[in-house]
Write a protein that binds this DNA or RNA. Structure first.
Lengths: 241, 241
DNA sequence: CGAGGCCTTGACCCAGCTCAAATAAGGTGG
DNA sequence: CCACCTTATTTGAGCTGGGTCAAGGCCTCG
């Protein structure tokens, strides 16, 4: 399922914000070791608790990071897309990944051996700082996540998810957007079952006026949605992402 | 409520694991700017969303980090004790803290201006790496937290909490331990109401044989507790903390 | 056109929440 | 050290959001 293609890895790497402080020669060195993966939906990059010494950067598509219990229950930890990275966990000395990674929408991914990162952190403190900032921000998102799951209802969590999707084009009375991956995955990402997701979406439809047709959602009154959603959150729309 | 005492700040700083890579002179420099706070239970160090430019290291006692919604609901993000730190969030450029910090058991805390950290990260990449590892691990804990709240029942979450408390002295058939802070805070930390906590603790008493007297808990059969608790988790006791 | 995946709906259940009241546990001043 | 007040914890009763189980509906792809 995993193809490797050789093209201009270096130029891609240089376009990744995280790597903006890297010198040309460093990027070239990394490109030597990097591989580009073209992975179709359904590909498992690695299983939970498997050994792994790579660092991944998502170029396009969607990747799900998840943990699962002995009894087979799954908790989605995060869902990543273009520009996001994962696998940095090994920096803390862990040899195995505490989560698994699966492609949920056809993706292009770049993989680097992790030792390159550690080396670069030691050599280039600007890069270290960039990593630090990124992780700090990620940790904060987890905190938000925990808050959301504690204080928000299912329809509110969905509202929050929709709002994040339309951040960019928040102007105009009517916003049309596209759910980026399967509803059942969104449900699980938001910590609910898909039946609940379905019903909660209906509730949003009648209560705050959105229209759902397949994976297309139209928000007719943004303000109404914001009021409904953010009333049970510590930060309000447009919130720190 | 906050007293400043001048004593040997530097020697304390040098004993903090996070700072193990710092040179004597650096530590001395930091000590110049550091202040030691003696804070009684109930002290608010800073409110959610307040501006703050400090980095805190807990020497003793317990600190609660929390977020709260407009309607006054509170979600506890983390509870910290000796050796833990917080306030690093500013490294990511945020000027305000997305959470508040309150002392929940009399504490000694060290505060440093945050710019010292940023400086040191730039100067000393070993320190940068240490921060990075620490944050990586913290992020992973958040992931665990999210998993726990999704897949574990209330009694299981309590079991998990108890197991963490007796990690150190896990030998011996009978383990006696002390709840480190108020039950209502533990409840909230575990994402449940205190009524639920109380009932769930009773359930643990009858189902896995523990004894509760005030804030003292006796575990009569560790294995039984582990079996009960960890069956709905991706990692088993003694799990990566 | 048929098979297999998603998604939705209905019926019912239950863990955990809410409201209210009774107890316990500290903490304070005398 | 005691009486008193305040705050934490426990318990009871009843409710409900979201889960479970099972049956269709719908869409995609071979």
């Amino acid at each position: 399922m995993i193809l490797k293609i050789k093209e201009d890895l270096k130029s891609y790497l240089s376009s990744v914000p995280l790597f903006s402080s890297l010198k040309e020669t460093t990027l070239a060195g990394m490109a030597q070791y990097a591989s580009a993966l073209v992975t179709p939906k359904g590909t498992t990059l690695f299983a939970p608790d498997s050994a792994n010494d790579k660092f991944y950067i998502v170029q396009s598509g969607w990747i799900k990071l998840y943990r699962e219990t002995l009894s087979g229950e799954e908790a989605i930890v995060d869902i990543l897309t273009s520009g996001n990275f994962f696998g940095e966990i090994g920096l803390a000395g862990t040899e195995t990944m505490p989560y698994g990674a699966e492609v949920i929408e056809d993706a292009h991914i770049m993989a680097l051996p992790r030792f390159l990162l550690a080396e670069e952190v030691m050599r280039n403190s600007l890069f270290g700082l960039a990593m630090l900032q990124s992780l700090t921000r990620q940790k904060m998102h987890r905190d938000m996540e925990i808050e959301h799951r504690t204080v928000q209802t299912a329809p509110q969590r969905i509202g929050c998810f929709l709002l994040k999707l339309c951040k960019a084009n928040s102007e105009g009375k009517e916003t049309v957007l596209h759910l980026p991956y399967e509803k059942s995955v969104i449900a699980s990402r938001l910590g609910m079952k898909s039946e609940t997701f379905s019903r909660a979406l209906n509730q949003l439809r009648t209560d705050v006026g959105i229209t759902v047709k397949g994976s297309t959602v139209t928000i007719h009154d943004l303000k109404k949605l914001v009021d409904f959603t953010c009333s049970a959150c510590s930060s309000s729309f447009p919130c720190a992402d």
